[in-house]
Design a protein around this nucleic acid. Structure first.
Length: 444
RNA sequence: GGACCCUUAGCCAAGCGGUAAGGCACGGGACUGCAACUCCCCCACCGCCGGUUCAAAUCCGGCAGGGUCCUCCA
């Protein structure tokens, strides 16, 4: 298993800290709005990472947070005349709905900032105690120049950052690079602390949660490329300050998604919400069609290609299952022994093991679809068909592409037979009617 | 102003020094009660100009075009 590590800027063999166990953390959403398809990219990708690692036999402890304390949430709460809690809960629920629709595993730890306030405050206190942070009139800042390798993750040097820094000239800060750990505030939700009444800066929550949940360096920390700087850089700085390690062994960053070659972001307002995409599986397919570190562009034309490809996959698998089910020959306990099928699975796994090259993994799926379709129009023995079905379901499952296989009940069977006999007796209007029914039941 | 990335057929997209995977669309066949689906065949010398090398889409330099970060953003 090879993973590109943003921290070292190279592809490395993945070795977990504890045998057969992977601790991973992915930066989650700030819950002030519905998620758009760009937000969905890391969500889907890291869900796929988890699935693949689990298929390799790792026990994966997956954690992803909810940022439920933030200026934007406060602003939204004021706009809608609601409490922050109501706002964040609403969008947390919406987020979980989207995850389910995208067939992402939602069974993982989802810590919220509000639930970790005590730990976050303690974390900041420790930083102050160790002289890595300083309190100015109730605001607390992190002293960046005390961290030797600051900039390593995002490949930049401190001098460039200082000379390039603009706008934000905060006289309270010792250095423009110092970042806020705690912000004294009167507006919106705020919390008691030894520093002041206020709320934590964004960069501390993840480190503090990781600290409290895992109690040690974790294996994988993931998130969008845009979080690399300053967010992840700052997480690393804090971790080095208190624990003298880089928080995670492997840092993984997915590339951004653009919309018609323009940046898609909530602030620009050109967003496509996940909830508004009717075809969620094609969306997942689309998000995995390009290697995760490459930029991905969304527009209706290219997305429609993936709708087609998805339908092709779904239809082939359904037809295959139907054939086996009709003859009562379906057997999911079968062992895959065919050399060609094993080879295809092998290719798939090789692609996935190569820094999660889902684009190439999909190629294996497409290739198997082709041979399935070929088999279906020939007389192929059931054993082989069962092997093909098992193989394609294995691949689809790792990519999280959910294909519903609906076994026929006696009524379905009856309909099917009537359809066939209507066809052979050339009663086409009846045949079409029955065909429609079967299709509505998801059988064909 | 500083840092950095990308450019492969009409479109999407692999490749990362050994002579262009795959998919969609198009075109030509086949199958078919009609649709849909499916199958077979066909479809590029890799932005441009130089250099390194026995060998370059792959390495180096320049140019052109596009994009990102340095500020909230997955």
């Amino acid at each position: 298993m090879k993973i590109f590590n943003s921290y070292t800027n190279q592809i490395e063999e993945f070795i977990s800290i504890h045998p057969r166990k992977v601790n991973m953390y992915v930066c989650g959403p700030t819950v002030y709005n519905y998620i758009h398809i760009g937000n969905a990219r890391p969500v889907v990708f890291f869900d796929t990472v988890r699935r693949y690692l689990e298929s390799l036999g790792y026990d994966v402890k997956f954690v992803s947070n909810f940022t439920d304390v933030d200026d934007k949430i406060i602003q939204k709460a004021i706009e809608e005349n609601e409490t922050e809690l109501v706002i964040s809960q609403k969008y947390i629920n919406a987020f979980l709905d989207d995850l389910n629709a995208l067939n992402c595993n939602t069974d993982y730890l989802q810590p919220k900032v509000t639930e970790y306030m005590k730990q976050i405050i303690e974390f900041i206190e420790d930083l102050i105690k160790n002289d890595f942070a300083y309190d100015v009139d109730g605001d607390v800042y992190f002293r960046v120049d005390k961290i030797k390798d600051y900039g390593k993750l995002s490949n930049r040097n401190i001098d460039d950052l200082i000379s390039g820094s603009r706008v934000d000239i905060n006289p309270k800060k010792e250095s423009p690079l110092d970042f806020t750990l705690w912000k004294k505030t009167e507006v919106g939700i705020n919390f008691d602390s030894p520093f002041s009444n206020g709320r934590p800066g964004w960069h501390t929550e993840c480190v503090s949660m990781i600290d409290n949940i895992f109690h040690e360096q974790i294996d994988i920390h993931g998130g969008g490329m845009d979080l690399q700087f300053p967010h992840h850089e700052n997480e690393i700085a804090q971790s080095k300050a208190l624990h003298n390690h880089s928080l995670a062994r492997y840092w993984m960053h997915n590339g951004r998604l653009s919309f018609k070659d323009e940046k898609m972001s909530k602030s620009l307002g050109n967003v496509v919400f996940v909830k508004d995409i009717t075809d969620k599986m094609p969306l997942r397919y689309f998000l995995l069609s390009t290697h995760y570190r490459s930029p991905l562009n969304y527009d209706e034309e290219s997305f429609s290609m993936y709708v087609k490809e998805w339908q092709k996959l779904e239809m082939a698998v359904k037809s295959l299952f139907l054939k086996l089910d009709l003859e009562k020959q379906y057997n999911d306990l079968i062992e895959i022994a065919s050399p060609e099928i094993l080879k295809e699975i092998d290719n798939f796994n090789l692609a996935m093991s190569d820094d999660f090259n889902t684009a190439n993994a999909i190629t294996s799926i497409q290739s198997l679809i082709k041979t399935i379709n070929q088999s279906l129009r020939q007389k192929t023995n059931y054993n082989h068909l069962n092997q093909q079905l098992k193989a394609i379901m294995y691949m689809a499952n790792i990519l999280g592409l959910k294909i519903q296989l609906i076994p026929m009940n006696s009524e379905d069977r009856n309909l099917y037979e009537q359809w066939q006999s209507a066809r052979s007796s050339k009663n086409f209007s009846l045949a079409d009617e029955l065909r429609l029914k079967l299709s509505q039941r998801g059988i064909i």
